[in-house]
C-alpha cells in the first residue's frame, strides 16, 4: 500500500522490502555522482589491497538505499532526519535487503519514526539506523 497521509500509517508497519543494486557498475555510478570515486569503492582488487574483503558500497549509498525505500513507500514524504550506523562492511556485488518498520507515529507533527536495517543473506545486520519522516496531509 502506498502511503499518502499520516492516517494511512500503522504502528509496527513494515515497509516493503527493497533489494538494492550493489553491482560494481551501479556503485561506480553512485560514487562518481557523489564525488566519492575512491578505489576502495570502485575496484575489488584495490580494496583487498587495503585489507578489506572487497570493494565497499559506500556508507552513504546504503543510507541512500534506505531513503529510497522510504520514498517508494510514501512518495510524498519528506525525510527530516536519517541517522545510520555502519556496523559492518556492505560489499559490492553481494546481495542485501533493505528493511524498515514504523516504531512511532506522532499525528500532531505528522511525523513517523522508522527503524532501518541493511541485512546480508545470512540475516546479519550490516547497517542500522532510524529516520524521522514527515507525511503531511495533502492540502
Amino acid at each position: 500500500m502506498t502511503i499518502n497521509q499520516i492516517s494511512d500509517v500503522e504502528f509496527g508497519e513494515e515497509l516493503p522490502v527493497f533489494t538494492p543494486d550493489t553491482s560494481l557498475d551501479n556503485v561506480r555510478r553512485f560514487a562518481t555522482a557523489a564525488g566519492w570515486a575512491g578505489p576502495r569503492f570502485t575496484d575489488h582488487e584495490a580494496a583487498r589491497a587495503e585489507g578489506l574483503p572487497g570493494a565497499l558500497v559506500p556508507g552513504i549509498m546504503s543510507q541512500g538505499f534506505l531513503a529510497a525505500m522510504i520514498h517508494r513507500w510514501a512518495p510524498e514524504s519528506r525525510i527530516e532526519k536519517v541517522d545510520t550506523v555502519f556496523r559492518a562492511p556492505v560489499i559490492v556485488d553481494q546481495p542485501y535487503t533493505i528493511s524498515g518498520v514504523v516504531t512511532d507515529i506522532d499525528e500532531e507533527t505528522e511525523t513517523v519514526e522508522i527503524d532501518l536495517t541493511v541485512n546480508n543473506e545470512a540475516g546479519e545486520t550490516r547497517v542500522f539506523g532510524t529516520a524521522t519522516v514527515r507525511i503531511a496531509t495533502p492540502a
Binding site: A33, G64, F65, A67, A68, H71, R72, P75
Partner: peptide, 18 residues
Amino acid sequence: ADDVVNFALACGEVAPRY
C-alpha cells in the same frame, strides 16, 4: 543536476522530484 539524477537513480529512487 546530472550528479543529483545519477545519485538518486543509483540509490533506487523512483520519485520524479529526485
